[in-house]
Structure formats: C-alpha cells, structure tokens
Simulated scan of single mutants.
Amino acid sequence: MGHHHGQDHGPHGHGPHGQGANNEKRVLWAFVLTAGFMGVEVVGGLISGSLALLADAAHMLTDAAALGLAWFAFRVARRPADTRRSYGYHRGQVLAAFVNGGVLIAVVGWIFIEAIARLREPVPVQGWTMLVVAGLGLVVNIAAFAILHGGDRQNLNMRGAAAHVLGDLLGSAAAIVGALIILWTGWMPIDPLLSMLVGLLVLRSAWFVVRESAHIMLEGTPADIDPAALRRTLMEAVPELEDVHHIHAWSLTPERPLLTLHARVTARADHQATLESIKKVLAERFSIDHSTVQIEREACGDD
C-alpha cells in the first residue's frame, strides 16, 4: 500500500500581517477611550444615583478589561510557532473572545438583579447629571465603536471587543432616554427598565460570540464548509480520484480553516499531480489554504 502525505504549512508561521496589526491598533485605541471615560461615568453614576449609569460604568470596566485582553491576544498571536505549539498562538484570540463573551453574560446577570431591586424600591435619580454624563459617554462609545467597526469584521476577537463597546453605546443611549423621561415626568422606574432592555441586547451579542468561539475550540466544522459537498466537488473535479473519505475540517481562527482527508486514486494516477489538483480545488472552491491530504492506492489503512 502506498501512502503520500501532502501538507502546506500556511498557518504555522504567520507573523504580524497588515490586517492583524491594524486590528491590534484599533483595539488599543478603543481601550484607551473606554478606560479613560469609565472613571467619569462612575463618579456621575454615584452623584446622580442612576443605576443606568452605574450599570454602564460597570459594563465599561469589564469592557476596558475585555479590550485589554483582546489587545493582548493580538500581541500573543504574533509570536511564532514553536515545538510545543506547532500552530502558533492564534487560538489565543478565540480564547479571549470566549472569555469576553462569558464576562458580558455575567454583567447582564448583575444588571438584572440590580434592576429588579430598583423596581421594588425606587431610588431618586438626578436627571441633569445623568443626562450630561450619558451624553459624554455616548460620544466616547460611538468613537470607540467606529474605530473597531473599521477593522476586520470576520475576526472573532474583534467581534467580541465590538460587542462590548456596542453594549456600552446602547447603555449610554438608554441612559440619555431615561434621563429625559425622568426630567419630563419624574418617573423613576424608567431607569432600571431601560437597564434591563440594554441587558437583553447585550446578552444577544455575547451569546453569539460565546457560541462561535466555543464551536471553534471544540474543533467544530466551519459553518461554510459542508464535508459532503466538498467530497462531491473533489470527485467531480479530479478524475484520478476513486474515493474521498475521513474528511475532517476545523478552524484555527474563523479566518483560518484547516482540513485533513484521505484520497484513494486510480492505479495509473500520478500521486504528486493528483495532490496538487486536490489542493487547487480546496483553495479555489473552499478557501482552504492549509490541508493535509493522504493519497492511497489501495484500501484505507485506518479502516
């Protein structure tokens, strides 16, 4: 039985590519803006008595930590592969996204607990102080979100960071609405009610980030790769193939799909030419630049 393995080692040695360096800078600037304004919002929330502001300040604290973690993950991903981590440190970005999403879910839980307590026992809120601080916060959060939104939208680490900042932006907008309603009507329950509404919106973003990052860490098949369709395409495009089996697809990060498969070829097939044909189809039709292909002439040894 003849076996021939074909590998390309694209993901093993990725350095700080232009897009990665751009993402890193954008996350750092968002971190500076968020951390800088967080203290202002804490003081404003304490003075005004607004749960919406304090909830947003707590959210900004977790966001500052999350953005710092996201930035650190980009830095770590630049480290070259070594003998212990042959794929390098790219998965650090996925781990950071998972942690960030989990922290967001915990923050939403805290906001709901506080909001329910406020609904049972309403607390007076200083509408003008709340309005001014929330207005400043909205400007800062719009700037931070615009910085992150201009980066790589496919990068899960960037999406996790943007989800945090989007939650802050919504929180500031809700606090402004709440302050205006309090100033016009004096109805205090609007403050915790809007906090809960923002919490639900943030929860949705956080859940998507956690679900996708967990799927990647569990070596789940990428959403845009159907193993059955991939097999059919290879069988149609490469005439030397008799069978394609043991197809395993997973992701290092959302932008870096990986694949292994076994390919049984005809008796007269040129192994190297067939291997090159398979890799060409994988790259052109499925955007898979890193694959390991085992060429077989007889029955599969793993069976």
Results as ranks from 00 to 15, higher is better:
Ala77Val: 14
Ala77Met: 14
Ala161Trp: 05
Ala65Thr: 09
Gly49Ala: 01
Gly151Thr: 07
Thr292Met: 13
Ser251His: 12
Leu230Gly: 04
Val293Leu: 14
Leu46Gly: 00
His271Pro: 01
His12Phe: 11
His59Thr: 03
Leu194Asn: 03
Glu121Leu: 10
Asp270Trp: 01
Ile295Glu: 02
Arg285Ala: 15
Ile278Arg: 07
Val293Met: 11
Thr233Pro: 04
Gly18Gln: 12
Val123Asp: 08
His14Thr: 14
Leu53Gln: 02
Gly151Gln: 06
Arg78Ser: 13
Leu61Met: 06
Leu234Phe: 07
Pro222Leu: 11
Ser251Asn: 13
Val27Met: 03
Asp168Arg: 00
His149Lys: 10
Pro122Leu: 07
Gly101His: 07
Trp128Cys: 02
Ala237Phe: 08
Leu193Gln: 03
Met188Gly: 01
Ala173Gly: 07
Ala35Val: 10
Val76Trp: 11
Thr129Gly: 06
Gln19Asp: 12
Ala237Glu: 13
Leu131Glu: 00
Gly102Met: 13
Gly68Leu: 07
Asp302Leu: 15
Pro257His: 11
Leu46Met: 02
Asp168Gly: 04
Ala269Leu: 00
Gly10Tyr: 13
Pro227Arg: 08
Ala35Trp: 05
Pro239Asn: 04
Leu183Tyr: 00
Glu41Phe: 00
Val198Leu: 05
Thr253His: 10
Pro254Gly: 12
Pro227Lys: 08
Glu24Gly: 12
Met158Val: 15
Leu131Gln: 00
Gly6Ile: 12
Ile47Ala: 02
Gly220Glu: 07
Ala161Gln: 09
Gly167Asp: 05
Ala21Gly: 12
Ser251Arg: 14
Val202Thr: 10
Val125Asp: 01
Met196Val: 11
Gly160Asn: 13
Pro254Ser: 14
Ala134Glu: 00
Phe31Ser: 05
Leu51Ser: 02
Leu104Met: 15
Gln7Pro: 09
Gly36His: 05
Leu258Met: 15
Glu255Met: 12
Trp71Gly: 03
Met130Trp: 01
Ala146Cys: 09
Ala269Asp: 01
Arg85Leu: 15
Arg231Pro: 03
Ser277Lys: 14
Gly137Asn: 01
Trp207Thr: 06
His4Lys: 10
Val177Leu: 03
Leu67Glu: 04
Leu156Ile: 15
Thr292Pro: 11
Ala97Gly: 13
Leu180His: 01
Leu69Arg: 09
Asp168Asn: 04
His90Pro: 10
Ala97Leu: 13
Val209Ile: 15
Ala206Trp: 06
Gly101Arg: 07
Leu69Asp: 10
Ala97Trp: 11
Val293Thr: 15
His248Cys: 12
Trp207Leu: 09
Ala97Glu: 13
Val140Asn: 00
Met188Thr: 08
Pro122Ser: 09
Tyr87Gln: 11
Leu138Asn: 00
Val244Pro: 04
Phe31Gly: 04
Arg264Thr: 05
Asp302Gln: 13
Phe145Gln: 06
